[in-house]
Amino acid sequence: MTIVTDTRPCSIDVVLGARSYPVSIGQGLLSDSRHWRHALRGRHVLVISNHTVAPLYLDRVLAGLEGLQASSFLLDDGEAHKTFANVGNALNALAQLGATRDACIIALGGGVVGDLAGFTAACWMRGIDFIQMPTTLLAMVDSSVGGKTGVNLPAGKNLVGAFHQPRAVIADIDTLATLPQREYCAGLAEVVKGAAIGDVEFFSWLEQHADALAARDTALLIEAIARKVRYKAGVVARDETEQGERALLNLGHSFGHALETAGKYTALLHGEGVAIGMLLAARLSERLGMSAAADTARLQRLLERLALPTAIPPGMQPQALLALMRLDKKNLAGTLRLILWRGIGRAEIVSGVNEADVLAVLEPA
Rank of each mutant, 00 (worst) to 15 (best):
V4R: 10
D13Y: 02
L16M: 10
A18G: 15
R19M: 11
V23G: 10
S24E: 10
D32K: 12
D32I: 03
W36D: 00
A39H: 01
L40T: 05
R43K: 14
T52W: 13
V53L: 03
A63D: 15
G64Q: 05
S71E: 14
G78C: 04
K82P: 04
N86Q: 03
G88N: 13
G88A: 13
L97Y: 07
V112N: 06
V112G: 03
I131P: 05
M140C: 02
D142H: 00
T149Q: 06
V151L: 09
G156C: 11
G156R: 03
K157N: 09
A162M: 10
D174N: 12
T175D: 00
A177L: 08
L179D: 01
L179W: 03
P180T: 08
Q181Y: 03
L188G: 12
G194D: 01
D199Y: 09
V200P: 05
D211P: 02
A214W: 12
A215V: 07
R216L: 02
R216C: 05
R216M: 02
A224R: 05
K232R: 10
R238S: 13
S254C: 11
H257M: 09
T266R: 14
V274K: 07
G277R: 03
E286I: 08
R305L: 09
L308P: 06
T310R: 03
Q317A: 15
R326A: 15
K330G: 06
R337Y: 09
L338S: 08
L340K: 11
I349Q: 12
E355S: 13
A356S: 14
P364S: 13
